[in-house]
């Protein structure tokens, strides 16, 4: 094992209160993300992307197999020190200001006060939030909250950034800004693992990808080697498409 993220034979089965298995969310997954690349974890809803990410983050324990982050178990603080995470929704404390949110996350990363303040100022400028730095984030728009969450995920200057649906709910301009930012961070040496439903965005940004369906890997490769749009490739690999039976409903 020598990737930044390594999963070997990882499975995860969720159980109910009586420990009876309810759903196998991930089934024998092997995954390696190498240093400096932007890796896209793609798949339809319920394919096991979020479960996989939670296992990488150490929020879930795999039922079988092994997860390694920088060669260490994800629960190891030394591994988490080099990790940044942007969740699908911007989980922010609404009573904190944007600056306080960044300083709080800087504190959790163990940064000293001087470094924390200077990085917070840099990130507020980078995300164009200087004018709103001292406003409570509870009153922010979704886009502004997203930018605060993104800034707080990189305040510790992580070696690995995990982005769960980073462009979810953003307008086209903000989406483009986020994509540019992701590419810039990767050029700076940061390894990035992202999930997205927006395959166009993934195609613009990712070097490599893996498509998950029903907890299993159904395709993996380089984005520039598929020879078609990622959307078409994705549908060809997933293979099934639901047609909602609308006519009977409309006929009533």
């Amino acid at each position: 094992m020598n990737g930044i993220i390594e999963l070997k034979g990882v499975s995860k089965t969720f159980r109910d209160f009586w420990l009876r298995p309810t759903v196998k969310a991930v089934d024998g997954l092997d995954l390696t993300v190498n240093e400096g690349e932007i890796f896209g974890l793609l798949g339809p809803n319920g394919s096991g992307k979020s479960t996989t990410i939670k296992m990488i983050l150490g929020l879930l324990r795999p039922g079988e197999g092994e997860v390694r982050l920088f060669g260490l178990p994800p629960s190891d603080p030394a591994a988490r020190k080099r990790l940044g995470f942007l969740p699908e929704l911007s989980y922010l404390h609404p009573f904190l200001t944007a600056r306080e949110t960044l300083l709080y996350h800087a504190g959790l990363c163990g940064l000293d006060t001087k470094t924390a303040r200077s990085r917070a100022n840099e990130l507020l400028e980078m995300t164009e939030l200087v004018h709103a730095a001292d406003r409570q984030v509870g009153g922010f728009s979704k886009g502004m909250a997203r930018r605060v969450a993104l800034a707080s995920s990189i305040i510790g200057k992580p070696g690995l950034l995990i982005l769960d649906e980073p462009t979810s709910g953003l307008d086209p301009v903000s989406t483009d800004e986020v994509k540019t930012l992701v590419k810039t961070l990767a050029k700076g040496g940061m390894t990035i693992l992202m999930t997205s439903h927006l395959l166009g965005d993934a195609q613009d940004v990712c070097d490599r990808f893996m498509i998950l369906n029903k907890g299993r890997s159904v395709a993996e490769g380089r984005v520039d080697a598929i020879g078609s749009s990622l959307q078409e490739y994705f549908l060809s690999k997933i293979g099934e498409r639901r047609d909602f039976k609308v006519a009977p409903f409309l006929a009533q």
Binding site: L57, R80, Y91, L92, H93, L108, C109
Partner: peptide, 14 residues
């Protein structure tokens, strides 16, 4: 409930 705990648990904090 707010999921801020999950986010804090991904940080290098015991």
């Amino acid at each position: 409930e707010m999921r801020t705990l999950s986010l804090a648990l991904t940080r290098p904090v015991k």
